[in-house]
């Protein structure tokens, strides 16, 4: 019968098993799922065999990364463009998650450089210190998924320059630190476009994880957070809650792209 093995058509005997066509140490992905080697091969399976620890070819890597999503999700994410405004604790982690999803285009916006105090929650490394966050994050994303189209904006966003910076985006993620900037972005983008905004408010400290929620507060505005936990002396920003919040925002982006608008 006919199957695809590492993207090439191959004929195998009926009742063949995966172990008949690979080595004992190989990782085998069939139609998007890791399978055991004793799995029986069936007609037109899409089989990808990767030797452990070895870099797959570009096409195989692309196929493997996207095959995990399934066709419907993959089509929706690969044609989407998302702007991430602010690459701090929220934005750097959101950008990585969106990259792992395979979002087609990411617009990365920040004016700052990586500092040592960022490393408690932001998706950077010691070796990034002193680099612009846009540069450090572009490098990181290319290491996750080299097929994503990245554009960067090295600017502090304000009401006058924001629309130009996010014009290619379908969805705008607000990931700023400052409350006034959050409100500015929301008001400016919603007033001047039909884009959807996924914003954040309240994720400092170590309050319950379960207080962080996603709410559709306006027709085109979702806000994630507990709504009250402001970053201040005695209530700093720490990795777990910031990442929970970032996960909510990234998942809301995915849900919107798939047409699940309600929360």
């Amino acid at each position: 019968m006919r199957v695809l093995v590492n993207l090439k058509e191959q004929f195998v005997d009926d009742n063949s098993r995966i172990c008949d066509i690979c080595s004992a140490d190989d990782v085998v992905v069939v139609d998007g799922y890791n399978v055991m080697h004793d799995t029986t091969i069936s007609e037109s399976m899409d089989i990808i065999i990767v030797s452990k620890g070895q870099m797959p070819t570009e096409e195989m890597l692309y196929r493997m990364m996207t095959s995990r999503n399934g066709d419907v999700v993959n089509k929706a994410v690969s044609s989407a463009s998302v702007a991430v405004c602010g690459l701090g604790g929220l934005g750097s982690n959101i950008a990585c998650m969106l990259a792992r999803l395979g979002i087609g285009q990411l617009i990365l916006i920040d004016y700052d450089v990586v500092e040592p105090t960022n490393l408690n929650r932001q998706a950077y490394y010691i070796s990034d210190i002193g680099k612009s966050k846009t540069r450090a994050m572009s490098d990181r994303i290319l290491m996750i998924n080299p097929y994503i189209k990245i554009s960067v904006v090295d600017k502090k966003l304000n009401a006058d320059n924001i629309m130009d910076s996010i014009k290619c985006a379908d969805i705008v993620v607000e990931a700023f630190d400052d409350a006034d900037s959050k409100a500015m972005l929301v008001e400016t983008v919603l007033e001047n476009s039909k884009k959807i905004v996924v914003a954040s408010s309240g994720m400092a400290g170590y309050g319950s994880s379960n207080d962080i929620v996603t709410k559709r507060v306006f027709n085109r505005l979702y806000v994630v957070g507990d709504g009250t936990s402001e970053a201040k002396c005695g209530s700093g920003l720490m990795s777990p809650r910031v990442n929970i919040n970032a996960g909510h925002q990234a998942n809301m982006v995915l849900r919107i792209l798939l047409g699940n608008m309600e929360e």
Partner: peptide, 28 residues
């Protein structure tokens, strides 16, 4: 509809209005 800040001082609240106010705190 989103209401810009410049309109806050000339908007009079009328019967039947539905208003959503979202308030942001710092941190991100």
């Amino acid at each position: 509809e989103i209401l810009p800040k410049s309109r806050y001082s000339d908007t009079i609240i009328n019967d039947g209005d539905i208003i959503e106010i979202v308030c942001f705190v710092g941190g991100g």
